[in-house]
Design a protein around this nucleic acid. Structure first.
Length: 427
RNA sequence: GGAGAGGUGCUGGAGUGGUCGAACAGGGCUGCCUGCUAAGCAGUUGUACCGGGUUGACCGGUACCGGGGGUUCGAAUCCCCCCCUCUCCGCCA
């Protein structure tokens, strides 16, 4: 949510920023409705002030035994009450509409974000590692996994339909090892691990920006008001909803493992094979809460932390800055970390690290009290994957594959797998 | 799931139709006093929104006593619905 002063005071600037996003947000309707609301609100409050004065007077007159005058004024106030009721209805309808429209305006892109509306306009920041060369044709993970007997799409389909996977044996263990490895790495870097609910109220999703606009991407549990989390960003960012944190406790850096559930509406044709796009996947998430002064420095810390996971696994990757029109709803600036996938001969997103500035903080009411005292201010929220576990598994299968179909286990993971050095056909 | 109790400001805790944004106490802040600390004395101390303005000094107004609706000239106070917390019972990993 944007600060109201922003579009009330400088609509042109907001209009221009939204144009960079190629956004169809209802800014003009918002401004117009807001103007009408304020007009009615002023009228309403004036009427109420009059009634408050009159009602006090009624009490006095009746108390003083001046019955006739009191009754006359009472009747007058009753009439005024009717008018107030009408204005109230009008004002609350307009105010509700303003709130609704406000929630439909995305965050404004940071000045350092490149122009453009899709990934072709992303700006390459850096590359790390060399894509491996193979003396054979590199194969995709959807062949490698099933042949080793550790990834099973057929049985997943029997259980739940398309876009699910069953992991067997060392595949399941590898998934678990990755989660543990990532969390340990983050904890050593000073992140506080947190375990959170996998079901959340709608208010949390409004807080982070998934609702009200993107409900079709979510799974809602029938008969309840709860949603399956699409990312740990939602419960973790909402942890301090309604709180005022002391500046001395910032920045806060949290990490959390959760499964993530996404309906993937509107992505029917895309990534239909393999583990890349699933209704359910594991992810370790990083969330920072920071002051406005430090949030962009924190974004660099965050993306570096995500990168350290890939470095630890010796997986080649690159970092790009997303274009203004390619970012998520809540983000002001986003770095994508893309891992090299030999089976597909391209870099694929494995982490997305964003600074949402105060956009989510306003929605979720996350504030801090400045060190010198004074009024609470909205803090800045950041989040990033560290990393998407399923896609990391994909990257390992494809980058560590061998001619005979076996797959080496990255050194860093061996302690988590009882020293296992290589994945061989099993089952 | 069943029964009971309760939700008031930073905290404890009064208030059962008007003079209550809310007694009193604690805490915080300011000043006095003080060699320092403690104690004491005096004052002060919420948030959001709307309007005005020397545009975040200030002035006026409205709202807020768990949330929503109702009764009334007027609601923290009366009525209805909902949520949450606590205690006991049941069930359960």
């Amino acid at each position: 949510m944007l600060a109201r002063e922003l579009w009330r005071g400088d609509a042109a600037r907001v209009r221009q920023a939204l144009a960079r996003r190629a956004s169809d947000a209802p800014l003009e309707e918002l401004i117009e409705t807001d103007t009408r609301w304020r007009r009615v609100q002023a009228e309403l409050e004036e009427a109420k002030a009059e009634r408050n004065r009159g009602s006090k007077e009624v009490g006095k007159l009746l108390g003083a035994g001046r019955r006739e005058e009191g009754e006359a004024l009472r009747a007058q106030m009753a009439a005024l009450g009717e008018r107030i009721k009408g204005l109230e209805g009008e004002a609350s309808a307009l105010s509700a509409r303003v709130a609704e429209l406000e929630l439909a305006i995305p965050n404004l892109p940071h000045e350092s974000v490149p122009d453009g509306v899709d990934e072709r306009s992303s700006r390459l920041e850096r590359r790390w590692g060399e894509p491996p060369t193979f003396p054979f044709e590199a194969r995709p993970h959807w062949d490698i996994g099933p042949e080793l007997g550790i990834v099973d799409f057929e049985r997943a389909s029997t259980l739940a339909g398309a876009r699910f996977a069953v992991l067997w044996g060392s595949g399941a263990a590898l998934e678990r090892a990755l989660v543990a490895y990532m969390l340990d790495l983050h904890r050593r870097a000073g992140y506080r691990e947190v375990y959170v609910p996998f079901l959340v109220k709608g208010a949390c999703l409004v807080g982070t920006g998934q609702l009200p606009k993107f409900g079709e991407d979510l799974f809602k549990v029938e008969g309840t008001e709860l949603y399956l989390v699409p990312t740990a960003e939602v419960p973790v960012t909402n942890l301090h909803r309604g709180e005022v944190l002391e500046e001395a406790t910032l920045p806060r850096r949290y990490c959390a493992y959760t499964p993530c559930f996404r309906a993937e509406a509107g992505s029917y044709g895309r990534d239909v094979r393999g583990l890349i796009r699933q209704h359910q996947f594991d992810k370790v998430e990083l969330v920072h809460l920071a002051t406005p002064e430090t949030s962009y420095a924190e974004l660099e810390v965050l993306v570096a932390q995500a990168e350290s996971v890939l470095q630890g696994l010796s997986l080649p990757y690159r970092v790009v800055t997303l274009a203004a029109g390619d970012m998520g709803f809540a983000a002001a600036k986003t770095y994508d970390v893309e891992v090299w996938l030999p089976g597909q001969g391209c870099y694929r997103e494995i982490s997305s690290c964003s600074n949402c500035e105060e956009f989510q903080a306003r929605r979720a009411d996350l504030r801090y009290r400045p060190a010198g005292g004074g009024k609470p201010r909205y803090l800045h929220t950041l989040n990033g994957s560290g990393l998407a576990v399923g896609r990391t598994l994909v990257a390992i299968l494809e980058n560590y594959q061998r001619a005979d179909g076996s797959v080496d286990v990255p050194e860093a993971l061996r302690p988590y797998l009882g020293g296992l050095e290589r994945l061989l056909p099993e089952g």
